[in-house]
Design a protein around this nucleic acid. Structure first.
Lengths: 185, 185
DNA sequence: AATCTAATTTGATATTCATCGAATTAGATT
DNA sequence: AATCTAATTCGATGAATATCAAATTAGATT
């Protein structure tokens, strides 16, 4: 899907191909004429035209000796309107592993036994670790501070710091003074 | 002018840059995060981002350690709407010599004394030669057949053929039986 | 002040691709 | 049938560029 979009942009990312589109927007031309107009060899123009044809922007009509190429203005209009549609933007990231960053950070900071080597100082890395830790809490369930500390102690001895940051980054919530905690959804 | 358009397409003709745009369309990211998400080195991502920034599609905000990049959606929308505007199509051909084909044909068929080596058999080349010859006639002036032949004889002895083709291609017009000719405008 | 960290820049490498000339193909004219 | 002509395909070459590693820069933390 996304490959198609890349291919489309690749085809248009050449000055001579853009000139061909501009010329064909005025009137149809044969390969030989385009070659003379662009100061290129016919073989080169043929090469460009085949790329343009492959994405459906131009088409050829055989006229006695000549292959007369014309612009498909409909295709151009349709393509240009949908280029950055929600659909295309989404498809471009379809194969991206959205957890790659978190996984990388977890790999760097979590030991084989599941505990943390250290608590990362960098904000974004800390966030990733906190997102990892919060999974140990069931959504909807209420925990006492003691229970919270017990779970966090699997990760690091500084449970108070982890608890505070979980709340600071709004991954966990606390009820007034009652000492009740729960995972934010 | 046209160079700008080529540059824009060049920037977008890379799969990883499109992925970056897709990702930034969802939320801002730091270079490091993008590198992890795309499975690339930070230096490579930095390189891509600088190209995207150069055409105004993304911009960076420094946040403590991080350079957090965001998509400029306005710029994206504006650009995408005007990509194939009449203006851009015209500017792409601004530097094209529209007479190049005719000149090439003339160079191939006209001797130094101004007469034709031969009359080209190919339709498109004949047209170019006829467009060249018709310049010897003043617009608006009426000519007798004898006068027409005299002018055409500078180019080739087969004046009847040239005369017929000039009329066939509607470069010249003839009044009924009266034998009056004039150049079409 | 000294040390870290993320980002950028630089240099090198490998790949992609525009261009040309030569060979081939497809069609038309004689 | 034989000969032209335009177009395409093929092979080679040189230029552009995506990528990485290493060095450098800019800022923040301790």
């Amino acid at each position: 899907m996304s490959e198609e979009l890349v291919a489309f942009f690749k085809v248009l990312s050449d000055a001579n191909r853009l000139k061909i589109i501009g010329l064909l927007a005025q009137q149809p031309y044969s390969v030989e004429e385009l070659a003379a107009l662009l100061n290129l060899k016919a073989s080169t123009v043929s090469h460009h035209l085949s790329k343009l044809a492959k994405v459906g922007l131009v088409s050829a009509k055989t006229e006695s000796y000549y292959n007369v190429y014309q612009l498909d203005e409909k295709a151009l209009e349709i393509k240009s309107k949908s280029l950055f549609s929600q659909e295309n933007l989404a498809s471009s990231v379809a194969n991206v592993d959205v957890d790659a960053y978190d996984n990388k950070v977890i790999k760097d900071y979590v030991k084989k036994d599941g505990s943390l080597k250290t608590i990362p100082a960098q904000r974004k890395k800390l966030e990733a670790i906190l997102r990892y830790i919060i999974k140990s809490f069931k959504a909807g369930k209420k925990y006492t501070e003691k229970q919270v500390n017990e779970i966090l102690s699997q990760y690091h001895e500084d449970t108070a710091y982890l608890r505070r940051e979980l709340i600071g980054y709004k991954l966990m919530k606390r009820e007034g003074g009652g000492g009740e905690y729960w995972r934010e959804e």
